[in-house]
Simulated assay, not measured.
Amino acid sequence: RLKRIEGQVRGIQSMVDEDRYCVDILVQISAIQSALKNVGFAVTERHIKHCVTDAIQNGEGDETIDELMSVLKQFSK
């Protein structure tokens, strides 16, 4: 997914260099933002299923949940 996003960013660079229509560039930026958000959700899900679960089982759940909530607040800005 990240390689695809990287390609999209390069595509936007080319669009800017070629002085393409601004709205087309904005549409591509929106697509990249959506793709990054989806990557963030996938990483969050993996973190919860593995890291948070392990921390809870090891008695460190409160710290890990607090950390996750802090990151989620930042992520949702």
Rank of each mutant, 00 (worst) to 15 (best):
L2G: 01
L2T: 12
K3E: 15
R4L: 07
I5R: 02
I5P: 10
G7T: 00
Q8Y: 11
R10M: 11
R10N: 10
S14D: 11
S14T: 13
M15V: 12
V16M: 13
V16C: 10
D17L: 15
E18M: 07
E18S: 12
R20I: 09
R20Y: 04
Y21P: 00
Y21I: 11
C22M: 09
C22P: 14
V23R: 10
V23W: 01
V23E: 10
V23I: 15
D24Q: 04
V27I: 14
V27P: 09
Q28S: 01
Q28L: 00
I32D: 05
I32F: 09
Q33A: 14
S34T: 04
S34L: 14
A35R: 03
A35T: 01
K37S: 12
K37I: 08
K37R: 15
N38C: 05
N38I: 07
V39F: 03
V39I: 14
G40C: 05
G40W: 02
A42H: 05
V43W: 05
V43K: 05
T44Q: 03
T44K: 07
E45D: 12
E45L: 13
E45M: 05
R46M: 12
R46W: 05
I48R: 01
I48P: 00
I48V: 02
K49W: 10
K49V: 07
K49M: 14
C51L: 09
C51T: 13
V52N: 06
T53Q: 00
T53M: 05
T53D: 01
A55T: 07
A55N: 05
A55K: 06
I56K: 07
I56H: 01
I56E: 01
I56Q: 07
Q57F: 08
Q57C: 03
N58H: 15
E60H: 07
E60A: 10
G61I: 05
G61R: 07
D62R: 03
D62E: 12
I65F: 03
E67G: 04
E67I: 12
M69K: 11
M69H: 07
V71K: 00
V71H: 01
L72H: 01
K73I: 08
K73D: 04
Q74A: 13
Q74C: 08
Q74Y: 12
Q74M: 10
F75N: 11
F75W: 11
S76L: 11
